[in-house]
């Protein structure tokens, strides 16, 4: 088979495909494709009865990207900044644009600190974090763990060993450090 102008593996005929595949070619004409063209001023959605939306009232100082001119008129209020993680996150927002790796790396650091803060706080509640129920391990009992994993050539099994280390590792390490600090020196 030489390299020529022809397609080396020609497709089946349109008639054959239409007979075999329900709806084959229904959107063959780009005009029938809802995302064609990608951008057009004819695509303004219905329902917006404003040129600029009314502004949502912030409860307090709401963090925002420095790449925004102002706080957007609508924003989420799901989990306001709090604690040390809140300080880290606010610094990331106030100091670095989205174009800087430092912005994102600080946010990742904030996430990890938030996890530690929240786990510790949970121990002061009537519902402390429970690694057995929260990791959903009970699914292992009912959802065919052996059949699902083995003899099926799953590529992900090469690295799933690292998951328990990632989940439990920081706790084991913290426990070890606490013990080391608290243990009286001889």
């Amino acid at each position: 088979m030489a390299y020529t102008a022809e397609k080396p593996v020609p497709p089946p005929s349109s008639d054959e495909l239409r007979a075999r595949i329900p709806g084959w070619g229904a959107d063959l004409d780009p005009a029938d494709r809802p995302s064609f063209p990608r951008e057009s001023l004819d695509l303004r959605p219905e329902g917006a009865h404003w040129d600029f939306p009314e502004r949502q009232e912030p409860d307090g100082p709401r963090e925002r990207s420095v790449e925004h001119k102002f706080l957007t008129p609508v924003f989420g209020t799901a989990q306001p900044l709090t604690g040390i993680s809140g300080v880290i996150r606010r610094y990331a927002y106030d100091r670095f644009s989205e174009g800087r790796a430092a912005h994102w790396l600080l946010l990742i650091a904030g996430d990890r600190v938030d996890a530690i803060e929240s786990h510790l706080k949970s121990f002061a509640t009537f519902r402390p974090d429970n690694p057995i129920t929260e990791t959903g391990l009970m699914a292992e009992v009912k959802r065919h763990p052996i059949r699902s994993r083995f003899g099926r050539g799953r590529a992900d099994l090469r690295h799933t060993w690292i998951d328990p280390i990632l989940v439990a590792g920081p706790w084991v390490l913290t426990g070890w450090l606490v013990l080391k600090v608290l243990r009286p020196k001889r």
Binding site: R38, E39, R44, G47, A48, E67, H68, L71, T72, V74
Partner: peptide, 30 residues
């Protein structure tokens, strides 16, 4: 997608890129 329907991007059909709903980032919508 959360989108306002009236910003530069929504007006052009890019509803997933709305500029009025995500204070935390300009690189992604709501």
């Amino acid at each position: 997608n959360i989108y306002c329907g009236s910003c530069f991007f929504c007006a052009r059909g890019l509803y997933s890129n709305c500029h009025n709903v995500n204070a935390n980032a300009t690189a992604v919508g709501g």
